[in-house]
Each structure stands twice: as C-alpha cells, then as structure tokens.
Design a protein around this nucleic acid. Structure first.
Lengths: 201, 201
DNA sequence: GTCTATACTAAGATAGAC
DNA sequence: GTCTATCTTAGTATAGAC
C-alpha cells in the first residue's frame, strides 16, 4: 500500500495541509461504499459524498478511481492487522480461531446485506483489467498465513489445508447468507465450524 | 423465466422466424460473458459478438439488459437440472455427492480464471437495484434442496446444515481458487470434502 | 424480421478560477 | 489546497430504413 500522494514531511501525522484527514476519510468511505454498492456501481461522487468531501476535490488526493480502490484495499489490510492483533491476546490457538468465527457470526447482518467485505471485493477486482486483484490477494494471504499458524500450533501437519478450508467456509457461507438474505445460515455454520475446531485438537 | 418475447404458435420448437435460434444463442452467450467479464463490465455489444448476432438485433429479442441477464439465469437453471439428472443415475447418495465434487474439481481451471459461474453472478446481482438477485436465489435453492435430499437419504437428521455447508465450501474454495489463481486449492479441498462425505455415513 | 444510425445518459477525468 | 465547470468516452436504448 504505497502512499505516494503524501509529502511525508511530518511522519506519523498527516500533512498540515490535509485538514481533517480527508485522504483517510476517502479511503475508509471507499472501502465502505465498494462493499455496499460494488466496485462498478460505486461512483467517485458516491465516495466523496460518503466521506463528506466535495466531489471535485477527490482528484487532489487520488489521481484515478484505481488509486482510490487501492487505498480501500489498504484500509482493509489495516483492519485485518488490528483484528489479528486482538486475537493474539487470547492464550490458545483454539480460542483464537473460535473467537474469529464468533466475530464472523456477530457480523452476520452485514453479510446478509452485502456479503463479506473483502471477499466480494476480491471477486469483483478479478473482473477488472488493472492488477488490483493481485494486491487484494496479498491481503487475503496474510489472513491465510495467520490461520495456518494457529492450526500448526495445534499440532496439525495439514495446517495449510485446514486454513484454506476455514477461510473458504467463511467466504462461502457469506455468499449464501447474502444470496438467501438469511442470517441464520451464518449462525448455524459458525456453530458447525466451532465444533469442527474442537474436534481437531 | 418468462418467455414473453416468443409467439409460441409452434410449441416446443422456436418460431419459424427465429432462424438459428438466436434467442437461445444470446442467452447462452450472456451466461458465458457475465461469468468471464462480470455483469457490469459486460456490454450488450460483447454478448452480441459472442453470440454471432448483430449488435442492433439484440433489442429485437430482449427489451433490456436485465431481460438478457434473466435469460442467462435461465440458462444456468437448465444446466443445473441437466447436472442433477445426470447425477441421479448413480445408485447411492454418497456416490452422487462425490461425483458432484469430482465435477467441481474437473472444472477447476474455469474457477481459476473466473470463479464459480453462478456464485459470482449471485454476488454481483445483489449489488443491483432490480430484483434479479431473488430469481438467482431461487435457482441456488434448487441445488441446496437436492443436496439436502442426498444427505437425508444417508440418514442424517442435520441434512439441511450439511447441504448448506457443502455448497458454502464449494463457493468459498471457488473464490479462493480464483483469488490466488491456484487450481490445486480446488483439488485439495475436493479431496477433503470427499473424505468428509465418507465420514458421514 | 434484420440491421444501421443515432439520441440520451452518466461517469471518469481535467482545466483553471478562487 | 479547494472547488466548479466542462470535456470525453462509452454504453443503453430507440427510431426507422431495408
């Protein structure tokens, strides 16, 4: 996630000129709008409105729509790192994985409305000619790698396959929860996955 | 899947005027192009070209792009019914489900390139204002219902949950196979699912 | 029933005033 | 650094010739 737009004269704080962190607001708004409306249906005007930034001002921060999408991927990556850091505080890998699943279940209403925020993005970016789908894949890989570590810590020698299966189960049930508009699908699959985690020890 | 465009004077055969079954060709081409390029990036011109039908002629058969999408959903439904009919010829539910999984694995290169033909469509239709996502959900339900019957025939009282889990596993691994451009993910998850089927009996 | 030309609309992007 | 006005492109859809 390069940051070529920023002057970076004052590290760790936004440039004095960027009052109110408009760049950050635009990136966060982009992530939200791309999830809710999809990549192709979301216009720069939609994102500007959601970020409370005048439409014509967007191009000062991002030269193209692609750059805004890249910033949205970066926002997802940050959220992912925060989630992982929070899970790391739990003592055992089983607890960490089950808390992960619990988080998915608690977010089920969002899945009902729009599917998985990051999975739908990966799916849509694949249809675009730009290389943003590769950037998104890198972020997805961070998550798989972390899950693999958890299964490894549980002593499984098929940890990679299990990590892929866990993420696939979540992506798939997110799609079905969204397609059928039924939050219970996520609840029941979450229960099943937690029992599965317990059975692996 | 209404057919209001057709005169239906000669049931079970296309109207004499529709030489070469252009309507059917357009529906099949639409299904293919929507999968490969996504709903929003696919233009009517793309579909017309893929179907070998002159661009301006499309509107004679379909009044709007939405009607073409609906016809594509219908084409998917037909393919689904054909697949189910073929699986029904196998003697046991275990064999039917494992052959289903085998079919998914054999189609892995398509998943690498574009994801699941129908799952990506459901995901994209959700972002549109029209009600086509509900039509797609009906088709998806046909598949779940059939899977549920198989698990029920195996004597499982949690057949619905298992059917949902199986379809979710496929949708999820299709997304990951596509995101990571790695057909092996589908192969390994297919193996895992077949072992899972065996373990349920 | 088939096809061409074109009207209409909307979105991405840019120039330049403030 | 902020914002308005506008250019350009592209896609859906329609009118009407053949």
């Amino acid at each position: 996630m390069t940051n070529s737009q920023r002057t970076d004269r004052a590290p760790a704080t936004p440039p004095a000129t960027a009052r109110g962190g408009k760049r950050e607001r635009l990136a966060a708004a982009a992530a939200r709008m791309l999830h809710e409306q999809g990549v192709e249906k979301t216009t720069l005007a939609d994102i500007a409105r959601a970020a409370n930034v005048p439409v014509g001002n967007v191009y000062y921060y991002f030269k193209t729509k692609d750059e805004l999408i890249e910033a949205a991927i970066g926002a997802h990556a940050e959220g992912l790192h925060a989630m992982i850091a929070s899970l790391e505080e739990l003592p055992t890998p089983q607890e960490r994985l089950k808390e992960l699943i619990g988080g998915w279940v608690r977010q089920r209403d969002l899945a009902v409305q729009f599917g998985c925020p990051f999975g739908t993005l990966c799916s849509e970016l694949d249809k675009r000619a730009d290389g943003l789908d590769r950037t998104a894949a890198e972020v997805m890989r961070i998550f798989i790698d972390w899950s693999e570590q958890q299964f490894q810590a549980m002593g499984r020698d098929d940890s990679r396959d299990l990590a892929v299966a866990l993420l696939a189960a979540y992506q798939g049930i997110s799609l079905l929860t969204n397609t059928f508009r039924d939050p219970e699908l996520m609840v029941r699959e979450g229960d099943r996955l937690e029992r599965w985690i317990d059975s692996l020890a």
